[in-house]
């Protein structure tokens, strides 16, 4: 199933900014890999905060059909 919020784990540096700042709280911290994971994707508002704040540009946001 297609996802709209995609984290590139090769780039992620575990700074936690996305997890800390997300206005809809859609991320959780995966304690095993110590990196964020999208847990509540259907609540994403496409505000772009995680995408623009990520210091490694590790988050990609892909336009979904339901917004069209």
């Amino acid at each position: 199933m297609s996802t709209a919020i995609r984290i590139d784990y090769r780039r992620c540096n575990s700074c936690r900014k996305c997890y800390d700042l997300c206005p809809m709280d859609i991320f959780i911290m995966d304690e095993e890999i110590k990196m964020p994971r999208v847990a509540y994707e259907e609540e994403c508002a496409f505000c772009g905060v995680c995408w623009m704040e990520c210091p490694k540009r590790a988050i990609d946001i892909v336009y979904p059909p339901s917004m069209w």
Partner: peptide, 13 residues
């Protein structure tokens, strides 16, 4: 700019 300096899009803007 973001790619050149490896910074966030917000910082690049």
């Amino acid at each position: 700019r973001a790619e050149e300096k490896d910074i966030s899009y917000s910082a690049a803007y």
